[in-house]
Design a protein around this nucleic acid. Structure first.
Length: 208
DNA sequence: AGTGCGATTGACT
DNA sequence: GTCAATCGCACTA
């Protein structure tokens, strides 16, 4: 290992500018695999490599924007790269990244991260969970990185504390499967993941 | 004002 | 593998 001068970040991370994000929902879901989600906190940086996503495109009856904009889902109608955070089952906050042009409601759910920076802090936030379980699952991911409802509507391409970085290395081959936990549209292959990555969530039958 | 229901998780058989 | 916890939101009356 090469020694670096103190104070330098161990890895160079490049912020993803909005023009580089695919506007199309499914394209964005595939694009995000391998990219890095970063949360800057006073205690240090928390980050993880995105290894699993799900697309909720326009016209999808399972999508939260399907019935039109409401106070809850309005973040899905923002330009690509905004956060849509909502509470599921009264206990877990789930993070989506909006897609499609402004005024069109669609997004991509982040389902799992491979932890990179701040692993000790993430482990504390997750109550001492094992490394493999730190951010494996959409609710676990937000708990590990300290992402809550205060980030609903935040611009991840806008210079804030929560942001997207380019991949440190190219992702391996992508797998595709049906989405997890849906009663409707379960057959559509809108879940994407890095094949063989142990940090991917989901039932075994969906791993393939 | 009341009701039903999740894009889940962790504990338990 | 099964199952209950938990609460904001959308919808009905």
């Amino acid at each position: 290992m090469t020694r670096r001068p103190p104070g330098n970040p161990p890895c160079p991370l490049r912020r993803l500018p909005r023009p580089e994000l695919p506007v199309d929902t499914v394209a964005l879901a595939r694009f995000l695999i391998g990219k890095v989600l970063v949360h800057e906190l006073p205690g240090g940086r928390l980050s993880g490599r995105i290894v699993e996503t799900e697309a909720y495109p326009v016209g999808d009856p399972s999508g939260h924007a399907y019935a039109g904009a409401t106070l809850r889902n309005r973040s899905l109608f923002l330009e690509p790269g905004h956060a849509y955070v909502y509470l599921a089952y009264g206990r877990s906050y789930l993070l989506n990244i909006s897609s499609e042009p402004a005024g069109v409601g669609a997004g991509v759910l982040l389902r799992a991260l491979e932890p990179l920076a701040g692993i000790a802090a993430m482990t504390r936030r997750r109550g001492g969970a094992r490394l493999l379980d730190l951010a494996r699952g959409p609710g676990r991911l937000t708990m590990a990185l300290g992402i809550g409802p205060e980030y609903d509507g935040a611009d991840l391409c806008g210079g804030g504390l929560l942001w997207l970085a380019d991949a440190l290395r190219p992702p391996g081959p992508l797998g595709a499967s049906g989405r997890v936990g849906l009663s409707r549209e379960a057959d559509r292959r809108l879940r994407f993941y890095e094949r063989g990555n142990p940090f991917v969530s989901g039932p075994q039958r969906l791993r393939a």
